[in-house]
Design a protein around this nucleic acid. Structure first.
Lengths: 344, 344
DNA sequence: GCATCTTGCTAATCCGATTTAGCCGAGCGG
DNA sequence: CCGCTCGGCTAAATCGGATTAGCAAGATGC
């Protein structure tokens, strides 16, 4: 694209040395002796001419493009996951790397084709990411390659995974509930989300529930009930409405996702119940909506930014990528939806 | 990254021809005569060996990397703008191009550095995008380059712009209002948004308001008032509450952004007013929240996907990029917040 | 005083493609 | 029978760097 760039040959000519000398001077390598005077002249010429190395040309020889590929199912589309990309991007930037972002939309063929497009461009590594935490089998083109799995697990596939610590988040939700004094009338809305159609629950739902029940039990409390439903606003609204209509009067709702909480808020409002005076709500995810809901939602944040950042950091650390599962903490965002239990 | 790739030399050897012949056979060029037999053998050998051209190496000679750079202020972060990237990505994919996605966070120095990183990698073109429609001055590194401005305008900068058709959207909002029978008691919340701190309004606010007032006037109606405030949930809540507290009873609210509508909903609910029976609401943007609000919000959609797609299409069309402003329609999403005016 | 090191630098290759220049043999006109 | 054209193909150069091999001059060792 337009006007010829200054090349190393230009710099060498300007400095009156050979391209070899220019190369060594510019890369700062010391295994070839260059006099201070020559080095200075090269550096000065480079500055003068505004020389910038052609990364593409260099990579032909060095095999390193300072470029990472990012393939996901539909991560850019999901409202909150832009943070994953931002985390990855910023970590990459700090080490002069750039990201190719791609999205396969869940289509295996598209996925393979994208991975090929990435490999054709000689990316140094590939991040294979999913929108929801789940098990995956990466495309075969990725076998034997430098890969980090982001937000997913692939047993038997030789690559590290970076996922949110859902188990500990479940425990933290229980701890927050107990700390506020809740021991009874606690309902979980959304449940394990073991619905095949929405695979997110396979990991997130199970672990959140497990951690929750574990700590509740240890604290001498327990769940009055678990309502299994899809993790969306409509289901949250419907299920909580039904629960209230059936005469149940919960004191605390653990919504397995913010979308569910939003539906629950609508159902509670319609029933004339206020949060947190009548019913406390604690949730998971910390989507944008959580902070603008009234009252603002207390929730365990999915650490998207950190997830993206760590994935890139593992790659840029250099050395082999050990197939370890890295669990990133989900911080509790304490806002206003969790209060003391309503008096009897 | 790992195991040596099959090169064209391998294919040529396998087919028993020179690399030159292999190159011409594979690229399908006809300006050099290759016998059908040779061509077939090359193609067969390539298939056999699973040959894929090294795009990086090729670009060294051809100057085309089939790669587009994308620089934005903070577009990945904004909840709804993932669609811009998706639109751009998909359009790129259709033509075997890939996108480098970067984000400068509004920092000029970071912006320059990112553009350099992009140019060092020989991108064929750069998309310069902003989160909100506004005027910009692109970094000097972009002058004379192949650039498309996305969601922004830069008078005097020689590049096409792709922006939403805010003016027509304002008109459409007015038309929808008139069609529903509204002619009085109409208030605009959010106004022109000419607040220096939030530059989004510079274009969007002014044009939406202009289109709105123009068509309202033509229809024999007018705005009872315009409340200038920030385009966020809290301001929407505050301003509408204040309006109602002052004894005003609007029949229709034109909220200049969905975030404002959400705040307005909260204020109306607290005042015991229902949508759309007591007060109609029409809005702009169509963020995710618009469809899960109760009642679902009627709004003019910001065409993010189309914006991203068109930007890439302009680039891949080939030929010079004329400095034209392309306005993409904002479709009306009719849902349930707009009804007939409340009876007197 | 001659062999051996250093020091400081350059020529030549290589990376994996594309592209230009040109070679060789067959067919053809004269 | 000679010179030309043309079909089919290859050698070599090129793109912009990194890297290996090696060379010349001065310093040092003995």
């Amino acid at each position: 694209m337009s006007e010829r760039r200054v090349t190393m040959a230009d710099v060498a000519r300007e400095a009156g040395v050979s391209p070899t000398t220019a190369s060594f001077a510019l890369s700062g390598r010391t295994d070839m002796r260059i006099s201070d005077a020559s080095r200075e002249r090269v550096l000065e010429a480079a500055r003068q001419l505004g020389y910038r190395p052609n990364v593409t040309a260099r990579s032909l020889r060095t095999k390193s493009t300072q470029t990472i590929g990012f393939v996901s199912d539909r991560i850019t589309t999901t409202p909150f996951a832009g943070d994953v990309i931002r985390g990855a991007m910023e970590a990459a930037r700090e080490r002069d790397n750039l990201l190719f972002i791609t999205e396969a939309g869940g289509d295996r063929a598209a996925e393979s084709s994208l991975v090929h497009a990435l490999l054709d461009r000689q990316v140094d590594a590939v991040i294979y990411a999913t929108m929801f935490t789940r098990y995956v089998t990466p495309p075969k083109e990725l076998f034997g390659r430098r890969v980090v799995l982001l937000n997913c697990l692939a047993p038997g596939f030789d690559a590290p995974s970076v996922i949110p610590d859902e188990l500990e988040a479940g425990r933290d939700a229980a701890r927050a509930l107990l700390a506020a004094g809740h021991t009874q009338g606690i309902w979980a809305i959304g449940g394990h989300q073991a619905v095949p159609a929405t695979p997110e629950g396979i990991i997130a739902g199970n672990e959140r529930m497990r951690g929750l029940e574990e700590v509740l039990r240890e604290g001498g409390a327990r769940l009055d009930g678990v309502i299994e439903c899809d993790w969306d606003t409509l289901d949250g609204y419907r299920e909580v409405s039904a629960l209230l209509a059936a005469g149940t009067r919960p004191r605390a709702l653990v919504c397995l996702a913010d979308r569910v909480s939003f539906g629950a808020y609508q159902a509670l409002a319609e029933a004339g119940l206020s949060v947190p005076e009548d019913v406390s709500v604690i949730s998971f995810d910390d989507q944008d909506i959580a902070s603008v809901l009234r009252p603002a939602l207390t929730t365990l944040k999915l650490p998207h930014y950190q997830l993206g950042r760590l994935a890139v950091e593992l790659i840029l650390r250099g050395g082999p990528l050990d197939p370890i599962v890295h669990r990133v903490p989900m911080p509790l965002r304490e806002r206003s939806s969790l209060g003391a239990p309503a008096g009897n």
